[in-house]
Structures are given as structure tokens and as C-alpha cells.
Design a binder for these strands. Sequence first.
DNA 1: CCGTTCTTTCTGTAAGTTATGAAATGTGCA
DNA 2: TGCACATTTCATAACTTACAGAAAGAACGG
Lengths: 174, 174
Amino acid sequence: MKLTATETKFILHWGEMGTRWGINRTVAQVHALLYITGRPVPADEIAETLSVARSNVSTSLRELQGWGLVKVAHLLGDRRDHFETFHDVWAMFKLVAVERKRREVDPTLVMLREALAQAEKDGEKASKERLGHMLEFFETLTEAFEEFVKMSPGALRKVVKYGGKLQKLLGVGT
Amino acid sequence: MKLTATETKFILHWGEMGTRWGINRTVAQVHALLYITGRPVPADEIAETLSVARSNVSTSLRELQGWGLVKVAHLLGDRRDHFETFHDVWAMFKLVAVERKRREVDPTLVMLREALAQAEKDGEKASKERLGHMLEFFETLTEAFEEFVKMSPGALRKVVKYGGKLQKLLGVGT
DNA sequence: CCGTTCTTTCTGTAAGTTATGAAATGTGCA
DNA sequence: TGCACATTTCATAACTTACAGAAAGAACGG
């Protein structure tokens, strides 16, 4: 499969973006390719298009399936697995956000609660206070996040719009 | 400086968390140490406490200052620079969020607009549509983010609370 | 079943990154 | 100005991660 200039640009940028957020470059590129292509693509074609080893593509697809971002499709008369991602960017973003929260934020909450309890027990007043602030922050953020993922983009826009007004009205800006 | 069990736990976890989000482990650990300590600490003490090279601490502190997370303080009768971070977790989170948006999301917006224009020019209808959806998503998210960073935790909680209600009321959930 | 095709797993190596210690530079005091 | 202390820079070593290619495994068709 031959990529257009536009597609190449998008895929490369997406790869770079991935690395900055702790996501493997190839994984991100494969996802970008599937997104921009918009139809099921067999693994060997992905490998050829991106100029990476077939095995690397296999691993990346597995990873993407683990995130729920990619699903397998089959075409009549073709034994090969084909892979596709979703068109709904918002939905994909949520998948990743929810999963990262589960993997990274939730354990942090656990750690903070444990550390706080220990600081309490050991009478470390200063640590306890700071850990408490941190925990409180994470709890607020988590709460906001839970609401956030329930929203559609339209709902989000409305909430933001009214939220800004609400904020001014109530004078809770401080 | 001798760390308590609680402090060690917190610092190590913070370091791991950092690596997962593309932030250097030592950088994150130094920040955690400063946060949990809550007072200005000289660089050599940081190095000793974390068992890392003095030069590594120097680099990490510079990085943290670049993010605006750490500032220098001086103590009377001590020529050494001392370093401290802020107590306000919310404020620090915003600093990082704003900066990462600037460094990573803004260039993505630029790329998407360029790619979209090019797809338009080259008559790539399918690509254009998908890039358009992606751009729209990023624009909505950016907009929401701009409002978000203006809020205090209290304001955020209120907006979330009323936002949920608003959403149901307006039936914009789809 | 056997051969073919497709996919995944495994392993050595390359690439990239991070950390170190030494050297260089900077800073303030006598 | 010279000395002592403090900090930064830099080359290299240590480590980590990513990748390709080989080999094994699975699915299918004849």
C-alpha cells in the first residue's frame, strides 16, 4: 500500500506523539495507519507500508487489541486476519483514558492511602498533611474524570460553557 | 537525610509513575522528595538521599525549573542553592498540563490543519474526512481544557456536579 | 494428514536513553 | 587576586527498550 504525503505526515506525527506519552512508536504508527486508512488491513500490508518487521506489527496489533482500539475482521476469500480501528475518535480516547486511569491512577490512589495510614501510625505529621493534600487532589480529579468519560463531545461543550458561567456566578474561582 | 518508610514509598512510586508518562525517573523522584520534604533542600543532600550522582540531580533540578515546578531558595549562612517545590498540588498539576499541551497538543493541531489542507488540495476525500474528525476532537478537548485550567478544585467539583445534571436535563448524552 | 499459509513467540542485537564521574566553569569570600 | 566551595557540562558507561529475523505454532485446504 502506497501512502500519500498527507497520510505519511499524520502517521509519523502520531508515532512521535505516542513516544512522548509512553506509547511505543510502532504501536502508535500502526494505529494511525488503521485510522487514516479506515478499512481492515492485513498485517503484512501494514508491515510493508510502515517498513517494519512483520513480527513487530504482530506485537503492536496485540497491544492495540489489549487497549480495545483494534479489532479483527475477516474478508471472504482471504484467510488472513485483517485489522481495523474505529472512526469515533472520542470513543477511542475514552478507551485509552479509562485504561490508563485503571493502570496508573488507581494504584497511585492505593499507594497514597497506604502511605497516609502509615504516616498516621508513625506519627509523621508533616508527611501526613502533604500526602493528604495529594490524595485529595487525586480524588477530586478522579471524580471529575468519571463524569467526563460519561459525556459526549456535545455534552462536554455544554458543560464547559455553562460551567464557566456557573463558576463566575458562584464566585468559586479561588 | 534519612527517609522514613512512608517517604521512600511515595518517592519510588512517583518515580515509576513518571516513567510511564514520559518523565525521567530521577526527575520525578527529585520532585517527590522536595514535595514530601516541604522545605528547601540543597542539591547534594538530594543526591545523597536518593543515591544518585550529584550531576544527575543538577540536571533534574534544571528540568524541573524548566517546568516551573521548582524554585531556588537561599538560607542565611549557607552558600549552597536550596530547592523547593510548591505545596499546592492543583497548581503544580496545572503547570505541567499547560506546558504539555503547549509542547504536544498545539503542534498536533497545527499538523492536523496542515494535513487537512493538503488532503483538500489533493482531493483525498476519505483522508480529509477522518482528519477532520480528529481535528474537531482535538479542538473540543482543547476548549474544555482551557476552561478546566481556570478552575479551582472547588469550582471543578461544582461544575462536574451540575454538569452531570445539566447533561441529563438537556438529554445531550448521545 | 500433509503441505501451505499465516501468525505468534523467542532471542540476539541495534538503537536509544539515562546516569555517572571527571573536568570545566562559575561564585563568593578573604 | 587567589582560594575554596558549588554547580554545570560532557564523554562514556550502564541500562533499557525496540526491532528484526529465525523458529515454532496454529489454521486451513487439498
